[in-house]
Amino acid sequence: MKNEADFIEQLLNSKKREKAFVRLLDLYQERLYWHIRKLVVSHENANDVLQNTFLRVYKSLPNFKQQSSLHTWMYKIAYNESIRLLEKENKKNQVSLDDVEQKHLDNLMGSSYFDGNEVQIKLQKSLLSLNDKQRKVFQMKYYDDLKFREIADILSIKENTVKTTYYGAAKQIEKSMLAVTQIGINI
């Protein structure tokens, strides 16, 4: 994409970087926030991770080697920052791997920025019933609109594995949601 190539050129040019960075922020702030929010759940943590993500992006821009698209690179940084925060929190609160899902749900229900009705809570619980990889893949595909190739790149797994994981997760979600609602899911 010519536009993206020009945009990257501006981001790499130290004289044009600041202006281009403001545009980058406009383009990615909201989408990265939602990507992060689903991973870390609470708004406060999502806010911290979003700030750290853009700080890291700003510092790393001169070293951006264009081995992946700017889009994937941004998501990858946001994803890594989210995982870093979750690991830090789990270590601090001594949460075992078995308790991570419960902790996730507690955080969600206790958050002042969660206003879920019965169906929304059911969907959140259905997402938590998926294993970690399934949940991440499903969220990145369904909510973040990322391509299978991009998800594979971010999670460092094969594209075919991403596809299989996504369809498996979608079926599971559909099944559990059909049990409580009449909302149809077309896979």
């Binding site: 702030q29 909201e30 926030y33 939602w34 009705n117 609109d145």
Partner: peptide, 25 residues
């Protein structure tokens, strides 16, 4: 995207959050 996250997942945000966050960044 915002609508989808709010309506399906029940996530909410403080008012004017993105503008304040942009300034802070």
């Amino acid at each position: 995207r915002k609508q989808k996250h709010e309506e399906e997942l029940g996530y909410t945000l403080p008012e004017g959050y993105f503008s304040a966050s942009k300034n802070e960044i």
